[in-house]
Amino acid sequence: MPEPQRARPKATPETQHFWDGTQAGELRLQRCNKCSKAYFPPRPFCPECGNREVTVFKASGKGFLYSYVIHHRPVPGFTPPYSIAVVELEEGPRMMTNIVDCPQTPEALQLDMKVQVKFEKLDDKITLPLFVPAKG
């Protein structure tokens, strides 16, 4: 029996650029050509103004810890306790992730601490954007 694995995302035509980006080591967001809003999750129009002219761009991968829980129950592919977090990116959008490479404790996981993306390759198709405490 193989080890149980974490849930695998499956891209759609509208989200493929995001998953291509993580494989290439880039965190890709979209921005409206008209109102300049940066947004996530991916869609081929601006959720602020409805404009279909949008641009995919490479985000800095930097942000801060907006909120989180430390999950204590077993989930396939995870060893409890582990953090499930929402980070707010420098560009504005928020995304769910895990904060890794630090103790999974309230003391180590301080709200508003700076974080940066770390790409975790799951398989040939999927690389996930995880986050680590920012250095320096």
């Binding site: 996530f40 499930i84 995304m95 769910m96 895990n98």
Partner: peptide, 10 residues
């Protein structure tokens, strides 16, 4: 499924 489930929500 793409942007929340892979991070261990259950």
């Amino acid at each position: 499924g793409q942007f929340e489930m892979p991070f261990g929500v259950a």
